[in-house]
């Protein structure tokens, strides 16, 4: 027996050649994917890459405004130096980051809580969701006007409510911290439903038998949420948060309508700052530099988030 075994041709498994290649099937899938998305990507490139590229060019040039437009005169980093030395820019940066983290966090918690309740509603989930989506479906400028009416210092709805119960007349938009908080409340009111709806969609997709197994294993609802629901929802939550980060970093219309960036510069976001510098101060170079810094912030922020969350969307978590 042993002799026979020795005479058999040996199967060589060279240790150097163990790197696993992507199999042809997934390669083909990838090719098909590229083929299908190329037209869309080209379009996206046209409408987004071009403006970004143009801003980049603007931000790296000496721009001088002429009678009928502007002209680029030579390469320079001076716009960025100006930025780094500007406390307004630094504040706008910090404000945007803080605002984004705070609102997204609150929206995520509230949205998930609402989603968990919605998911339990078997009857009436549809109408409830439609109702919930009303704030989200409203154009931001309009909902901002609405909140303006609520916060307004003299005739505002909140004003009269506070004085009706004898709590005096607090300031909402007129001083820095309350203005920031008021704006965040308006934002959370509008976008929490969006997060909730995405999370509901994720929840109903989760395999029910896994929860049965957890129940049999003796998990409480609290443990089930943290050990089962949340980890399985991670890809969904990642998508919701990513969307929200992208939007919140671009915060513009809410401060534009509600506070105009004030009082002082206390609610001036990067996007608003860029707009003001470019179109109110007619300072194209630095304005473009602010815009580029905002773009960088979005990219770095999203990557950082994905890194922290380690969500390999749709790959790892779902069976």
């Amino acid at each position: 027996m042993a002799v026979v075994a020795n005479e058999l041709p040996k199967v060589r498994r060279s240790p150097t050649n163990t790197k696993i290649k992507r199999d042809t099937h997934s390669k083909r899938l990838a090719r098909i994917g590229w083929a299908f998305s190329t037209p869309a990507l080209l379009f996206v490139a046209l409408v987004t890459i071009f403006p970004i590229g143009f801003s980049l060019a603007l931000s790296l040039s000496n721009v001088s405004v002429t009678g009928n437009g502007f002209s680029l005169q030579g390469f320079t980093f001076s716009n960025y130096y100006e930025l780094l030395n500007s406390s307004t820019w630094r504040y706008a940066m910090e404000f945007t980051v803080f605002y984004t983290i705070a609102t997204v966090l609150v929206e995520l918690i509230l949205g998930t809580a609402i989603a968990l309740i919605l998911e339990r509603l078997t009857k009436g989930r549809g109408p409830m969701m439609a109702l919930l989506l009303l704030p989200w479906s409203m154009i931001t400028v309009i909902s901002a006007e609405l909140w303006q009416y609520i916060y307004e210092g003299t005739y505002g709805v909140l004003q009269s409510m506070f004085s009706a119960v004898g709590l005096g007349s607090p300031v909402f938009l007129g001083s820095p911290t309350p203005a920031v908080v008021s704006m965040m409340v308006a934002d959370i009111w509008k976008t929490t439903p969006f997060v909730a709806v995405i999370v509901v969609a994720g929840l109903v997709m989760l395999p029910s038998e896994v929860f049965e197994a957890a129940a049999v294993d003796g998990a409480s609802s609290w443990t089930t949420f943290w050990r089962i629901t949340f980890p399985l929802l991670r890809p969904t939550i990642a998508i919701a948060v990513l969307f929200r980060i992208l939007q919140a970093f671009g915060l513009f219309d809410l401060p534009f309508v509600l506070t105009g960036g004030g009082p002082g510069t206390s609610t001036t976001s990067l996007a608003l700052l860029s707009y003001k510098v470019m179109f109110q101060n007619i300072d194209y170079g630095p304005g473009a530099a602010v815009a580029v810094s905002a773009t960088l912030l979005v990219i770095v922020g999203s990557l950082l988030f994905l890194r922290v969350f380690k969500a390999q969307v749709g790959k790892e978590e779902l069976q």
Partner: peptide, 15 residues
Amino acid sequence: RDIAMVFQNYALYPH
């Protein structure tokens, strides 16, 4: 109820 169950469709925790 303090039961242990083997599910017909396994119901393993995928994560």
